[in-house]
Amino acid sequence: MKNFLSLVLVLALGGMIILSLQNNQYFTAYGEVDITKRVSESYIDRDVNGGTQAVEFGVANNLESGPANIVTAIVADYRSFDTLGEVTVLFVSSLGVALLLASGKQKRLDLHFHPNFMLRVGSRALFGIILMTGIFVIVHGHLTPGGGFPGGTMIASSILLLYLADDNFRTKVKSFKTLESIAGSLYVIIGLVGLFAFDYFLVNFLDNGILGELFSAGIVPIVYALIGLKVGSEISGIIDNFLTEEVA
């Protein structure tokens, strides 16, 4: 009875939201979005601070915000404060998981699933490839889709692969912690340098170079690399916490 009641309720709610969105004349329907009426129009034309240069791949030099990938421009440059918050969220949850699960000395959880031969050999081979793609994605974050977060998770998945491959494999948690903390604090220090030297927190003080070049978009690739390392170490830390148990 309770399930039926909640089903009815939920459906009614869903129906109402959909209908209200349809009737709402300001809610632009799916697909007919007019970018010019939105804030993101100036993200595309890079004229937030009045930049007049036409944005052209391979030609535009020292634009207002460097990365070719506009999403990365928003994530790491226009709204980089969100990303800082983002990183702290992940940092806090990994710390929380560590606090909850890993309070004493840890040892690997003895699962009744033991990796067979195929998995052991296969994962050794795959580990390198996944790691490389992860790093590639991080480094080219400002040019191609992806960036710090996806790259970081790829690195973590490669480490997960090692965990699955071998029962008593344990990464040196200590080193991940230090890597994570260094990356994080470097990111904030860059921001502070921006604040003290160039009187805006997280400002892109390096020159942006030519749109589309590997070495362009000022601090964005550096920041994304740091984020990638941090996310990678945090998620592998979480994996480690889940796959270990307290030494009795």
Binding site: V39, V48, N49, D77, G194
Partner: peptide, 10 residues
């Protein structure tokens, strides 16, 4: 934050 004026930056 980041030098971008109000509605665009944070």
């Amino acid at each position: 934050i980041g030098g971008f004026s109000a509605p665009y930056g944070i």
